[in-house]
């Protein structure tokens, strides 16, 4: 696919609030990206020129924010709406290998949708959620920079351009980001994730060691910050790569503020994947 052909949709409903910077990140790399309200996929009241189909796009992003206020469980309402109107389309989209990204609240939505951990390639949306993003161990919302070690051997289409073992800085900003697997089966889940090369990012300290709070900002099991599905085309993470697209968005930049930030490689990776698609 040519660069100019690539079309990215960042989905929005009331309360999603990181769509503008996410759209901007993609557009900065020369692809077409737009924020699309979920209603544009199904509602009769939408004018013809604003109606959309999932298959108008090659990449779908669930952005950060507080979709529908997150008053139930984070991501629960957004995912319920997606299920009710887009389930079949989204399954086909994933099965065909198109990439889907969930950042922060988007990760929570993907977990609620059963798209992550996504062990079954033929059934990309599990019938019921198999993981949750629980309330942070600190018991409140925290906005802070985090260091992540890239641990993926090459399956995840969103991090192909990041070397394995590299440490990057993406900030987090969430109240519910602690990765939890079904009680008593944690080891089993971790084993499968490792075996399938589904673990993408883990929280580390400034020296690259796996460490506790505040380096692991939420108490996530195995310091997990982001994982992909078994096929590698669905990726969810709590930290925000779109907030470090440029160096000047990092804390403490002293030199070259106009150079790429650590998060840019996520967007570059998926674009490269789509160009070869």
């Amino acid at each position: 696919m040519e660069l100019e052909e690539i079309r990215v949709a960042v989905l929005r409903i009331e309360g999603t609030n990181c769509e503008d910077e996410t759209v901007k990140a993609f557009r900065s790399l020369g692809v077409y990206a737009e924020a699309v309200h979920l209603k544009q996929f199904y509602s009769d009241m939408i004018k013809d020129e604003e109606q959309r189909s999932l298959f108008d796009f090659h990449c779908i992003v669930f952005p950060g924010g507080f979709s529908a206020g997150d008053y139930v469980r984070a991501g629960a309402i957004f995912s319920a709406r997606v299920k009710s109107v887009l389930k079949r389309d989204l399954e086909e989209f994933i099965r065909e290998g198109y990439p889907v990204l969930g950042i922060c609240n988007g990760f929570q939505v993907l977990a609620e949708l059963g798209a992550l951990p996504g062990f079954d390639e033929d059934k990309p949306l599990a019938d019921k959620p198999e993981m949750a993003l629980g309330i942070n161990e600190s018991n409140r919302f925290e906005c802070r920079p985090t260091f992540l070690r890239h641990e993926n051997d090459g399956k995840c289409v969103f991090t192909k351009k990041i070397e394995k073992g590299k440490i990057v800085m993406f900030p987090v900003a969430h109240a519910e980001g602690r990765v939890i697997f079904p009680r008593g089966r944690e080891e089993d889940y971790l084993e499968r994730l490792k075996e399938n090369d589904q673990i993408v990012f883990r929280y580390v300290d400034e020296r690259g060691n796996y460490a506790g709070y505040p380096w692991n900002p939420n108490g996530s099991i195995y310091n997990i910050a982001g994982i992909c599905n078994v096929k590698g085309n669905v990726f969810g993470l709590m930290p925000h790569p779109e907030r470090v697209f440029w160096r000047y968005q990092h804390p403490n930049w002293l030199e070259n503020p106009e150079s790429p930030g650590d998060g840019r490689a996520v967007f570059e990776s998926v674009i490269e994947y789509l160009r070869k698609f």
Partner: peptide, 19 residues
């Protein structure tokens, strides 16, 4: 407080070595 949403905060309220 989320002081970074919108990705426009070039100089943040907390400055210096991370953590």
């Amino acid at each position: 407080y989320d002081h970074e949403v919108r990705a426009c905060t070039a100089i943040k309220p907390l400055q210096g070595k991370i953590n």
